[in-house]
């Protein structure tokens, strides 16, 4: 089975973003980049799937500049067999999807893992875009995956419950927490990762009618109204209810 895991590299979750070039770009100075958490879940499930299906191979694929290779090596250390880096700045999901679909058409695929969303621009759409470019099915927010023969059974999160989805292969899925427990690479994995193949490919020219114009930081909130319960819980509770009914008008 040809297993593909799409990996995006995103600012560490504690990053406080600032912007440059007229606020059109993230200031990457001093920002630590990590493998997108959802891609770690994917990777974990992909490794188990490969191990259960002898002869299978996991290819990690990313659209990113050379600085992403550190994180790609981490994905190899966690168990992927080879990696492809498409040498371009990931401008947006549509751009990324066209690049990845183009390469996948060359190398072939059975199951393509993406994450439910990247924690930078929170698009949650790249996987579905790749699937559509390749004209294969997509299933979003997948919490469990079972594959037998040419068919997959998945559970995906929906409002107020879960949906059971049946899909034929090849397919793309967007993984959600639950599909696999992130693998922490061990020393042997890290050593092996150094010699696993990492191929760099140049991007194709594409035009996308979506443009990020500017970023801004949210306006700081005014100081809130806080009541101390110490000594008199009842008073604090009454004051809160008064505020919520008269000012906030939420009750």
């Amino acid at each position: 089975m040809k297993i593909i895991v799409c990996v995006s590299c995103v600012p560490d979750t504690t990053t406080k973003p600032t912007f440059i070039e007229n606020n059109s770009k993230l200031n990457e100075q001093g920002v630590q980049f990590i493998v997108n958490p959802y891609d770690e879940y994917s990777l974990a499930r992909a490794v188990a799937l490969r191990d259960a299906n002898p002869g299978s191979k996991i290819t990690v694929i990313t659209v990113g500049e050379a600085s992403t290779e550190q994180n790609i090596r981490k994905a190899l250390a966690a168990g992927a067999d080879e990696a492809i880096r498409i040498n371009a700045k990931p401008i947006n999901a549509q751009y990324v999807a066209k690049q990845i679909a183009h390469v996948l058409k060359e190398i072939g695929f059975d199951i393509i893992f993406t994450g439910k969303e990247s924690i930078d621009y929170n698009g949650g759409i790249t996987g579905n875009l790749i699937a559509t470019e390749l004209d294969i099915p997509y299933t979003h927010s997948v919490t469990s995956l079972e594959v037998s023969g040419n068919e997959a059974k998945m559970e995906r999160e929906i409002e107020g419950g879960k949906e059971v989805v049946k899909s034929s292969l090849p397919m793309v899925l967007g993984s959600q927490k639950g599909i696999g427990e992130p693998i922490i690479p061990n020393m042997m994995g890290i050593a092996k990762a150094r010699t696993k193949p990492l191929t760099v490919k140049e991007p194709i020219a594409v035009e996308i009618p979506t443009l990020l114009v500017t970023h801004e930081l949210p306006k700081p909130k005014g100081a809130g109204k806080f009541f101390k319960a110490e000594g008199n819980v009842q008073d604090a509770v009454n004051q809160l209810i008064e505020s919520l009914s008269k000012e906030a008008k939420t009750i």
Binding site: P11, H215, P218
Partner: peptide, 18 residues
């Protein structure tokens, strides 16, 4: 527009497709 970086910033986009 939408919030990005998980609520830590807002971003504005222009869409120019047919």
């Amino acid at each position: 527009g939408k919030t990005v970086f998980s609520g830590k910033a807002n971003a504005t986009f222009s869409l120019s497709g047919e």
